[in-house]
Deep mutational scan, measured.
Amino acid sequence: MDVFMKGLSKAKEGVVAAAEKTKQGVAEAAGKTKEGVLYVGSKTKEGVVHGVATVAEKTKEQVTNVGGAVVTGVTAVAQKTVEGAGSIAAATGFVKKDQLGKNEEGAPQEGILEDMPVDPDNEAYEMPSEEGYQDYEPEA
């Protein structure tokens, strides 16, 4: 019985440690998101679009440190934060509304985080759909 109880105690310690790591990862992701939003706020009209992409990228980098179902929630929060940063930029006159959601080359930025393969159960990952990809044929 002692062996059984000791095993359960060790398992509990492992769960607590994993929860603490997840909590730490979420806190880091939130900190990076805040950094990115402050970065966007300090940019001029020309830099705002690039700044919004930076927020998304920093958040995406930190999301990889967070495991399990938390990833889905962090990704949703990050996307809403990026959308909010863009709205703030438009409201303050840093950028025109028609410039939001495009990178410096004018290509749409939507789907940055949505296409990231995420499995809350950590069982399997699927690649994003290939609808947006084109076949590449090298020139002879």
Rank of each mutant, 00 (worst) to 15 (best):
V3K: 01
Y136P: 08
M1F: 00
S42K: 14
V3G: 01
V16I: 15
E131A: 13
Q24G: 03
T64W: 07
Y125F: 06
V48K: 01
P128M: 14
G73Q: 13
E105V: 09
V74F: 10
V16N: 06
G86Q: 12
K96N: 13
A124T: 02
K60Y: 05
V52Y: 15
G25V: 14
K80V: 08
K32Q: 03
I112C: 05
L113W: 12
E131I: 12
V15D: 00
L113Y: 10
S9H: 09
H50V: 03
K96H: 09
N103G: 06
K10T: 05
E137C: 07
D121M: 10
S9T: 02
Q109L: 05
K80E: 02
T81Y: 14
P117T: 08
A27L: 11
G86H: 11
G25C: 08
K43Y: 14
K21W: 09
A78K: 05
K21S: 09
N122K: 14
E139P: 05
L8E: 00
S42G: 07
H50S: 12
K43A: 08
L113P: 11
A91M: 14
P117W: 10
E61Q: 08
K12F: 03
T59G: 05
S87C: 10
A85R: 04
V3L: 05
V82D: 01
G25S: 12
V66T: 03
E110S: 06
A19M: 07
V82Q: 05
G73P: 02
A91E: 05
Q109H: 13
E123D: 12
Y39H: 06
A76P: 01
L38K: 09
T44M: 14
K102S: 01
V37F: 07
V95R: 08
G36V: 09
V3T: 00
K43W: 14
Q134A: 06
V49L: 13
K43C: 13
T92R: 06
A91P: 04
V40I: 11
A90E: 05
K34L: 05
S129H: 06
V77H: 01
V49K: 12
A140K: 08
E139H: 08
V3Q: 03
P138C: 08
E139W: 06
P117L: 05
A91K: 04
D2M: 05
E114G: 10
A85S: 04
E61H: 04
K23S: 04
V95I: 13
P120C: 07
E126A: 14
E46P: 02
E123W: 10
A11I: 15
K43T: 04
K96D: 07
K45L: 13
K6N: 07
M5D: 00
T64F: 13
D2K: 02
A27T: 03
K34Y: 05
I88W: 14
A69F: 11
K34C: 07
T54E: 03
K21H: 03
K96F: 14
F4M: 03
A17R: 10
A17C: 07
V63K: 01
K6R: 04
E46C: 07
K10D: 01
K10M: 10
G31A: 08
V52W: 15
Q134D: 06
G51W: 15
L38T: 04
D98Q: 06
K12T: 09
M5F: 03
G101Y: 13
E13A: 14
K21F: 15
G14D: 02
A91W: 12
D115H: 11
V70P: 01
A19W: 15
A11S: 02
E114H: 07
A69Q: 09
T33I: 03
D2Q: 13
P108Y: 10
V66A: 05
T92A: 09
Y125L: 08
G93F: 02
G41H: 12
V66Q: 01
K80W: 15
F94T: 03
V40P: 00
V70H: 01
T75G: 07
Q134S: 09
Y125E: 05
D135G: 06
V118C: 11
V71Q: 03
V49D: 01
K102E: 12
E110D: 12
V55M: 10
E83Y: 03
P117V: 12
Q134G: 14
G31C: 01
P117G: 12
D115Q: 08
T22G: 05
T44F: 15
E35S: 07
I112P: 09
D98N: 08
V95S: 10
A17M: 14
T72G: 11
V77D: 01
S87K: 04
Y125R: 06
G86E: 13
K6S: 02
A140P: 11
E110M: 08
P128S: 04
Q99P: 03
E105T: 13
K60N: 02
A76E: 05
E137A: 07
T33P: 00
A107L: 12
T33F: 13
K97C: 12
V49F: 09
F94P: 03
A69Y: 07
V3W: 02
V118T: 03
G36R: 15
K32L: 15
G7E: 03
A85Q: 02
G51C: 15
K23F: 15
E61Y: 02
A140F: 12
K45C: 10
G106I: 12
E123A: 05
F4P: 00
P138E: 04
E28L: 07
G25P: 00
